[in-house]
């Protein structure tokens, strides 16, 4: 396993300080949007399901910001709100979508788990997006665009066979794809030790895919590692497997958490939002939070007033 040493130069340190504010904005936006979504669900304004990214914001923000948004491609899964907001900051589009309104980024047809904007695609079935991401990486390699593809996986997804087929092909054909495993240690209600034999960190190594493992409590750390990894993937046109240990602070979806209060309280000690907030002056932080609160409130109000999509907006055959 590669050791990725986080030793930023002074220039990078300055840049990182500037980035902290950007990262905080994004992470706070994600947290607040997710909290609003859970509230809206509880109030009956959202149907279906909502898988929140609470606790995983450092991973979503750190990884997505390491990409070249003009060309890189993201595939993600059922828990993709955080990555989506980090990618395009479309608060209105996301809230509208999840509320099933035509102002949603996919007209309310896709909902929480099926979102697409520009080069980001999500789908709700575990594992299936992985060969799609490998195919996208192959397409971009053939086209010579220099784009890389990142695909977000969860620890639960590592039970799907197609993931390993995709590891094999990505390595065999030297494709520029980053397999990004967010390991929150629990799949819906089932803890990792009831699902997986052996370690997840080393799963891709047998396919000759370089791998690394980091914690997701510090966004700056995730970001610098992700930048290094993304550069490697792009430069060498090789796959990479990055295992990120994260805490799922919220339920799997809506309110279905079966973990003990003590366990969740202990996870909250690792809350990446708390960590980054401590590095910002209180005044600045309050100012940022206030603006974002207003922005989200406005987006919710707009979605409330918006219409639902009509049958004519569905494609047929």
């Amino acid at each position: 396993m590669l050791t990725l040493v986080n030793s930023p130069s002074p220039d990078q340190q300055n840049m990182a300080r500037d980035l902290t504010e950007v990262f905080y904005r994004q992470m706070y936006t994600i947290r607040k949007v997710e909290q609003n979504l859970l509230d809206l669900f509880a109030q009956g304004y959202i149907t279906g399901t909502v898988h929140t990214s609470m606790g995983q914001e450092a991973c979503d923000v750190g990884v997505v910001n390491s990409l070249d948004r003009s060309k890189d491609i993201i595939f993600s899964n059922h828990r993709a709100h955080g990555q989506f907001l980090a990618y395009c900051d479309d608060v209105e589009g996301l809230i509208g979508e999840i509320m099933g309104k035509e102002t949603g980024v996919c007209l309310g047809i896709g909902g929480s788990q099926h979102i697409h904007r520009e080069n980001m695609y999500t789908n709700g079935v575990q594992g299936g997006i992985v060969p799609n991401a490998v195919g996208a990486a192959l397409a971009e390699k053939i086209k010579g665009t220099g784009a890389i593809t990142v695909v977000f996986l969860g620890d639960g997804t590592m039970g799907e066979g197609v993931v390993y087929e995709s590891f094999n092909i990505a390595s065999l054909w030297s494709l520029p794809v980053l397999f990004l495993l967010i390991d929150n240690g629990i799949a819906q209600s089932t803890p990792k030790h009831l699902e997986h034999a052996g370690e997840l960190e080393t799963r891709a190594m047998t396919f000759a895919i370089d791998s690394a493992s980091i914690e997701a409590d510090d966004v700056n750390k995730v970001y610098s590692t992700a930048c290094e990894v993304v550069n490697k993937v792009r430069e060498h046109s090789r796959p990479f497997f990055l295992h990120v240990k994260a805490a799922r602070l919220g339920p799997h979806s809506k309110g279905d958490d079966t973990r003990s209060k003590e366990e969740i309280e202990s996870l909250k000690q690792k809350d990446p939002l708390l960590k980054i907030s401590e590095s910002l002056p209180v005044g600045l932080r309050m100012e940022i939070e206030q603006k974002i609160d207003v922005r989200i409130q406005t987006a919710v109000e707009k979605a409330m007033l918006a219409s639902h999509p009509g049958l004519e907006q569905l494609r047929r055959v």
Binding site: P131, N132, V134, A136, A137, E140
Partner: peptide
């Protein structure tokens, strides 16, 4: 994965 790759390529 063969089918999955074709889908990914077609998307791109």
């Amino acid at each position: 994965s063969i089918a999955g790759l074709t889908v990914g390529m077609a998307l791109r």
